[in-house]
Computed example of a mutant assay.
Amino acid sequence: MDSRTVFPLRLASLVSSNSDILAALGVADWVVAADSHSDAPGLEAAVRVGPDLDIDLDAVAHARPDLVLASLSVPGMERVVDGLHERGLPTLILDPVTVADTLADIRLIGQTLGLEQKGEAVAAQLEADLTRLRATYPRPPRVLVEWWPRPIIAATRESWVTELLAGLGAVNALETRPGRSSPLTLDEVREAQPDLIVCSWCGAKKLRPEVIEARGLGVPVIAVPESGLGRPGPRLLEGARQLAAALGTLNLAPSRRAGAATARTA
Protein backbone atom coordinates (compact mmCIF):
# COMPACT_ATOMS: atom_id res chain seq x y z
CA MET A 1 0.00 0.00 0.00
CA ASP A 2 1.36 3.48 -0.79
CA SER A 3 0.41 7.15 -0.46
CA ARG A 4 -1.75 7.01 -3.62
CA THR A 5 -4.15 4.53 -2.06
CA VAL A 6 -4.07 5.48 1.65
CA PHE A 7 -6.72 7.81 3.04
CA PRO A 8 -4.90 10.79 4.64
CA LEU A 9 -4.94 10.93 8.42
CA ARG A 10 -4.97 14.05 10.56
CA LEU A 11 -1.63 13.90 12.38
CA ALA A 12 -0.08 15.83 15.24
CA SER A 13 3.71 15.71 15.57
CA LEU A 14 5.17 16.97 18.84
CA VAL A 15 8.92 16.55 18.26
CA SER A 16 11.16 17.47 15.35
CA SER A 17 12.45 13.94 14.77
CA ASN A 18 8.96 12.61 14.13
CA SER A 19 8.18 15.52 11.82
CA ASP A 20 11.35 14.76 9.85
CA ILE A 21 10.25 11.13 9.50
CA LEU A 22 6.79 12.15 8.29
CA ALA A 23 8.37 14.47 5.71
CA ALA A 24 10.64 11.66 4.50
CA LEU A 25 7.56 9.46 4.12
CA GLY A 26 5.93 12.17 2.01
CA VAL A 27 3.06 12.94 4.38
CA ALA A 28 4.06 16.23 6.00
CA ASP A 29 0.88 17.72 4.55
CA TRP A 30 -1.12 15.32 6.74
CA VAL A 31 0.17 17.14 9.84
CA VAL A 32 -2.49 19.44 11.32
CA ALA A 33 -0.54 20.32 14.50
CA ALA A 34 3.19 20.45 15.16
CA ASP A 35 5.59 21.62 17.84
CA SER A 36 7.23 24.99 17.29
CA HIS A 37 10.71 23.51 16.70
CA SER A 38 9.76 21.25 13.79
CA ASP A 39 11.18 22.68 10.56
CA ALA A 40 10.54 19.86 8.09
CA PRO A 41 9.27 21.01 4.70
CA GLY A 42 5.52 20.72 4.14
CA LEU A 43 4.32 21.80 7.59
CA GLU A 44 3.14 25.24 6.49
CA ALA A 45 -0.54 24.49 7.20
CA ALA A 46 0.07 22.90 10.60
CA VAL A 47 -1.05 24.74 13.73
CA ARG A 48 1.94 25.33 16.00
CA VAL A 49 1.29 24.10 19.54
CA GLY A 50 4.43 25.22 21.37
CA PRO A 51 7.92 23.84 22.10
CA ASP A 52 8.25 20.12 22.75
CA LEU A 53 8.48 20.41 26.54
CA ASP A 54 5.69 22.98 26.82
CA ILE A 55 3.08 21.66 24.40
CA ASP A 56 -0.37 23.27 24.53
CA LEU A 57 -2.27 20.03 24.93
CA ASP A 58 -5.65 21.69 24.57
CA ALA A 59 -4.55 23.11 21.22
CA VAL A 60 -3.49 19.61 20.15
CA ALA A 61 -6.92 18.25 21.08
CA HIS A 62 -8.63 21.16 19.29
CA ALA A 63 -6.84 20.18 16.06
CA ARG A 64 -8.77 16.86 16.17
CA PRO A 65 -5.87 14.57 15.21
CA ASP A 66 -6.50 10.97 14.28
CA LEU A 67 -3.05 10.19 15.70
CA VAL A 68 -0.51 12.07 17.81
CA LEU A 69 3.14 11.19 17.36
CA ALA A 70 5.22 11.94 20.43
CA SER A 71 8.58 10.75 21.71
CA LEU A 72 10.39 10.16 24.98
CA SER A 73 13.75 10.88 23.34
CA VAL A 74 13.43 14.45 24.66
CA PRO A 75 13.98 14.32 28.44
CA GLY A 76 10.88 15.58 30.25
CA MET A 77 8.35 14.55 27.59
CA GLU A 78 6.71 12.12 30.01
CA ARG A 79 4.48 14.92 31.28
CA VAL A 80 3.29 15.70 27.76
CA VAL A 81 2.57 12.05 27.07
CA ASP A 82 0.58 11.79 30.32
CA GLY A 83 -1.46 14.82 29.22
CA LEU A 84 -2.22 13.24 25.86
CA HIS A 85 -3.47 10.11 27.58
CA GLU A 86 -5.60 12.14 30.02
CA ARG A 87 -7.34 13.73 27.04
CA GLY A 88 -7.95 10.37 25.43
CA LEU A 89 -5.99 11.25 22.31
CA PRO A 90 -4.77 8.36 20.13
CA THR A 91 -0.99 8.29 20.38
CA LEU A 92 2.12 6.65 19.00
CA ILE A 93 4.94 7.12 21.51
CA LEU A 94 8.48 6.48 20.29
CA ASP A 95 11.55 6.09 22.48
CA PRO A 96 14.62 5.44 20.32
CA VAL A 97 17.96 4.85 22.03
CA THR A 98 20.03 3.52 19.13
CA VAL A 99 20.33 3.98 15.38
CA ALA A 100 18.67 0.57 15.03
CA ASP A 101 15.74 1.89 17.09
CA THR A 102 15.52 4.89 14.79
CA LEU A 103 15.34 2.68 11.71
CA ALA A 104 12.68 0.56 13.42
CA ASP A 105 10.67 3.71 14.26
CA ILE A 106 10.70 4.82 10.63
CA ARG A 107 9.35 1.42 9.65
CA LEU A 108 6.79 1.49 12.48
CA ILE A 109 5.43 4.91 11.49
CA GLY A 110 5.20 3.74 7.90
CA GLN A 111 3.26 0.63 8.93
CA THR A 112 0.97 2.62 11.24
CA LEU A 113 0.06 5.04 8.45
CA GLY A 114 -0.48 2.30 5.87
CA LEU A 115 2.80 3.20 4.14
CA GLU A 116 4.77 0.08 4.93
CA GLN A 117 6.67 -0.01 1.64
CA LYS A 118 7.64 3.63 1.89
CA GLY A 119 8.76 3.23 5.49
CA GLU A 120 10.89 0.24 4.56
CA ALA A 121 12.43 2.13 1.64
CA VAL A 122 13.30 5.20 3.73
CA ALA A 123 14.80 3.10 6.52
CA ALA A 124 16.78 0.90 4.14
CA GLN A 125 18.19 3.92 2.28
CA LEU A 126 19.23 5.62 5.53
CA GLU A 127 20.92 2.43 6.75
CA ALA A 128 22.77 2.00 3.45
CA ASP A 129 23.89 5.63 3.35
CA LEU A 130 25.22 5.43 6.91
CA THR A 131 27.06 2.19 6.17
CA ARG A 132 28.86 3.80 3.24
CA LEU A 133 30.36 6.41 5.56
CA ARG A 134 32.30 3.90 7.65
CA ALA A 135 36.08 4.32 7.57
CA THR A 136 39.10 2.64 9.16
CA TYR A 137 41.51 4.61 11.35
CA PRO A 138 44.85 3.81 13.05
CA ARG A 139 42.72 3.60 16.18
CA PRO A 140 39.05 4.47 16.73
CA PRO A 141 38.80 8.24 17.19
CA ARG A 142 37.24 9.28 20.51
CA VAL A 143 34.41 11.78 19.99
CA LEU A 144 32.49 13.79 22.57
CA VAL A 145 29.15 15.22 21.45
CA GLU A 146 28.14 18.21 23.56
CA TRP A 147 24.42 18.98 23.87
CA TRP A 148 24.80 22.06 26.08
CA PRO A 149 27.68 24.29 27.28
CA ARG A 150 26.71 25.55 30.78
CA PRO A 151 26.71 23.16 32.49
CA ILE A 152 28.47 20.95 29.99
CA ILE A 153 26.05 18.18 28.99
CA ALA A 154 27.13 15.46 26.58
CA ALA A 155 25.81 12.27 25.01
CA THR A 156 26.61 9.14 27.03
CA ARG A 157 26.26 5.40 26.55
CA GLU A 158 22.50 5.06 26.01
CA SER A 159 22.37 7.53 23.14
CA TRP A 160 21.98 6.92 19.41
CA VAL A 161 25.20 8.93 19.16
CA THR A 162 27.13 5.94 20.51
CA GLU A 163 25.95 3.60 17.74
CA LEU A 164 26.19 6.32 15.10
CA LEU A 165 29.86 6.89 15.96
CA ALA A 166 30.57 3.16 16.06
CA GLY A 167 29.14 2.87 12.56
CA LEU A 168 31.61 5.51 11.39
CA GLY A 169 34.57 3.67 12.92
CA ALA A 170 34.80 5.96 15.96
CA VAL A 171 33.75 5.69 19.60
CA ASN A 172 31.75 7.84 21.96
CA ALA A 173 34.32 9.18 24.42
CA LEU A 174 31.67 8.71 27.12
CA GLU A 175 30.57 5.21 26.05
CA THR A 176 31.17 3.78 29.53
CA ARG A 177 29.14 6.45 31.29
CA PRO A 178 25.54 5.30 31.89
CA GLY A 179 22.48 7.20 30.73
CA ARG A 180 21.49 9.06 27.60
CA SER A 181 23.32 12.25 28.55
CA SER A 182 25.16 13.58 31.55
CA PRO A 183 26.43 16.85 33.02
CA LEU A 184 30.22 17.00 33.12
CA THR A 185 32.92 19.02 34.77
CA LEU A 186 35.78 20.28 32.63
CA ASP A 187 38.05 17.77 34.36
CA GLU A 188 35.69 14.95 33.34
CA VAL A 189 35.80 16.14 29.74
CA ARG A 190 39.59 16.15 29.93
CA GLU A 191 39.61 12.66 31.46
CA ALA A 192 37.49 11.33 28.56
CA GLN A 193 40.42 12.24 26.26
CA PRO A 194 38.38 13.12 23.16
CA ASP A 195 40.12 13.47 19.83
CA LEU A 196 37.20 15.57 18.59
CA ILE A 197 34.49 17.58 20.35
CA VAL A 198 31.24 18.26 18.55
CA CYS A 199 29.24 21.38 19.35
CA SER A 200 25.61 20.35 18.77
CA TRP A 201 23.73 22.40 21.32
CA CYS A 202 20.02 21.57 21.49
CA GLY A 203 17.70 24.53 21.15
CA ALA A 204 20.51 27.05 20.66
CA LYS A 205 19.87 29.77 18.08
CA LYS A 206 23.58 29.89 17.25
CA LEU A 207 26.34 27.33 17.70
CA ARG A 208 29.55 28.79 19.10
CA PRO A 209 32.38 26.25 18.91
CA GLU A 210 34.75 29.00 20.02
CA VAL A 211 33.23 28.72 23.51
CA ILE A 212 34.43 25.12 23.67
CA GLU A 213 37.80 25.99 22.16
CA ALA A 214 38.29 28.66 24.84
CA ARG A 215 38.34 25.96 27.54
CA GLY A 216 41.93 25.27 26.54
CA LEU A 217 41.71 21.53 25.98
CA GLY A 218 43.60 21.68 22.69
CA VAL A 219 41.08 19.40 21.02
CA PRO A 220 39.60 20.09 17.55
CA VAL A 221 35.99 21.31 17.70
CA ILE A 222 33.36 21.23 14.97
CA ALA A 223 29.80 22.52 14.91
CA VAL A 224 27.02 20.18 13.80
CA PRO A 225 23.46 21.52 13.93
CA GLU A 226 21.12 19.83 16.39
CA SER A 227 19.01 18.79 13.41
CA GLY A 228 21.86 16.52 12.29
CA LEU A 229 22.65 14.79 15.58
CA GLY A 230 19.94 15.55 18.13
CA ARG A 231 17.03 14.09 16.18
CA PRO A 232 16.73 10.31 15.85
CA GLY A 233 15.40 10.32 12.32
CA PRO A 234 16.49 10.52 8.68
CA ARG A 235 18.49 13.72 9.20
CA LEU A 236 21.06 11.81 11.26
CA LEU A 237 22.67 11.29 7.87
CA GLU A 238 23.48 15.01 7.73
CA GLY A 239 25.34 14.85 11.02
CA ALA A 240 27.04 11.58 10.11
CA ARG A 241 28.41 13.11 6.92
CA GLN A 242 29.85 16.07 8.83
CA LEU A 243 31.36 13.75 11.43
CA ALA A 244 32.91 11.52 8.78
CA ALA A 245 34.50 14.52 7.09
CA ALA A 246 35.93 15.80 10.38
CA LEU A 247 37.21 12.38 11.44
CA GLY A 248 39.12 12.11 8.20
CA THR A 249 41.17 15.21 9.07
CA LEU A 250 42.34 14.03 12.50
CA ASN A 251 45.98 13.26 13.20
CA LEU A 252 45.52 10.28 15.50
CA ALA A 253 48.50 9.77 17.77
CA PRO A 254 48.62 6.56 19.82
CA SER A 255 46.07 6.68 22.63
CA ARG A 256 47.36 7.77 26.01
CA ARG A 257 44.90 5.30 27.50
CA ALA A 258 46.52 2.46 25.56
CA GLY A 259 49.94 3.65 26.66
CA ALA A 260 48.86 3.73 30.27
CA ALA A 261 47.44 0.21 30.00
CA THR A 262 50.71 -1.04 28.51
CA ALA A 263 52.67 0.56 31.33
CA ARG A 264 50.49 -1.11 33.96
CA THR A 265 50.94 -4.56 32.43
CA ALA A 266 54.67 -4.26 31.78
Rank of each mutant, 00 (worst) to 15 (best):
L14F: 08
L14C: 06
S16P: 12
S16W: 06
S17Y: 01
S17H: 15
S17I: 03
S17Q: 10
S17D: 11
N18C: 14
N18V: 00
D20T: 02
L22N: 05
A23C: 02
A23S: 11
A24W: 00
L25P: 04
G26F: 10
V27H: 01
V27S: 00
A28P: 03
A28D: 03
A33P: 08
A34E: 05
A34I: 06
S36K: 05
S36V: 03
S36P: 06
S36T: 09
H37N: 07
P41V: 13
L43R: 00
A45H: 14
V47Q: 15
V47M: 12
V47R: 15
V49T: 12
V49G: 05
G50M: 08
G50D: 11
P51Q: 12
I55D: 06
I55E: 10
A59I: 09
H62S: 14
A63N: 04
A63H: 02
P65Y: 11
P65C: 11
L67F: 10
V68F: 00
L69Y: 07
L69R: 03
A70T: 14
A70Y: 00
S71W: 02
L72H: 10
L72M: 12
S73N: 13
S73T: 13
P75Q: 08
P75C: 08
G76T: 06
M77G: 02
M77F: 14
R79Q: 09
V80I: 15
V81M: 03
D82W: 01
G83W: 08
L84S: 04
L84W: 01
E86L: 14
G88P: 06
G88S: 03
T91K: 10
L92E: 13
I93Q: 05
D95G: 12
T98D: 10
T98E: 06
V99K: 13
V99A: 10
A100D: 15
D101N: 13
A104M: 09
D105G: 07
R107G: 04
R107W: 04
L108K: 12
L108S: 11
Q111V: 07
L113R: 02
L113I: 09
G114Y: 08
L115Q: 10
L115T: 05
E116W: 02
E116I: 00
Q117T: 13
Q117I: 05
Q117K: 11
Q117S: 13
K118E: 15
G119N: 09
E120R: 15
A123E: 12
A124M: 05
Q125N: 10
Q125M: 08
L126E: 08
L126Y: 08
A128Q: 14
A128K: 12
D129C: 00
D129Q: 14
L130Q: 07
L130T: 03
L133W: 07
R139T: 04
R139P: 10
R139M: 10
P140L: 07
P140I: 10
